[in-house]
Amino acid sequence: MPTEPSLRERKKLATRAALSRAAWSLMVEQGLDAATPEAIAAEVDVSPRTFRNYFASREEAILYSLVQRGHDLLDALRARPVEEPPWDSLTHVLPAWTTEFVGQRDTIAVLLRVVEVNPSMLAQHVVTYELIDRQLADLIAQRTSTDARRDMTPRLLAAAAAAVLRASIEVWAEGSDDIALPVLVREGLQQVRAGLPAAAALQVSSGLLSSPEDT
């Protein structure tokens, strides 16, 4: 049974979370250039040295909250019935969780624009998704009594779910229609489960694959 964190540990976690919120707000409201370690520290009324005790960079601070929300995904999956197939568990959990993960549409759109033009943010964004991906693979391995270091199945399932998540968020944030994010995630998971029939149809129409009539 996990032990409760001490008062000191809770204070450290609160400070880390406050620094991350400040970094995120500065980026969204004033742009990435405004989110310096000094400005982030000032928002929380701590010293720049304190900031550097918690984060190696502003990019890490900005995306820290996404990593923490990834832990909520793992907790939600652990709560699913043990005998439930992993993809069924993901289909039940991911659509609703994604909304909590990304927050508001306009702010995630800002993040994606920043990531697109800033190499350091892109690198940290990749690291964030890879961390969640790896943790998800380990959890799937635990629930299926496999070894993620030797068995491809948990890695493939986690990578496929992460790809659906990324694609859904990008379409939702950059699109002009009103399709809800959970709907996109659910549709993406269904397409992967069905073997990506839409992608296969596109390949046939482009001549990349032979249609059944051609064989």
Rank of each mutant, 00 (worst) to 15 (best):
L136C: 12
L189V: 00
L112K: 10
K11F: 05
L196W: 05
K11S: 09
R143N: 12
R21K: 13
M121Y: 02
L74Y: 07
D33Q: 14
S211Y: 12
P154D: 02
D214P: 15
L7I: 11
A42H: 01
L26Q: 03
D75N: 04
A42F: 00
Q135S: 14
V171K: 02
T50K: 10
S6W: 04
V82L: 11
H125N: 07
A194T: 02
A39H: 14
L139E: 12
V115Y: 02
S206K: 12
S206A: 14
P197A: 12
I62Q: 04
T144C: 08
L90I: 07
W24E: 10
P81M: 11
H125W: 02
A14I: 03
I140L: 11
A159N: 15
P2W: 00
V115L: 01
L139N: 14
A23K: 10
A160E: 15
E38Q: 08
D133E: 14
P212D: 12
A158S: 15
R166K: 07
A56S: 11
R105I: 00
A76M: 07
Q203I: 02
L94Q: 07
D106N: 10
P154L: 01
N53V: 00
I40M: 04
D88K: 13
E4A: 05
M1H: 08
R10M: 06
L32E: 07
R150H: 10
S120C: 01
L122G: 07
G103V: 04
D72F: 01
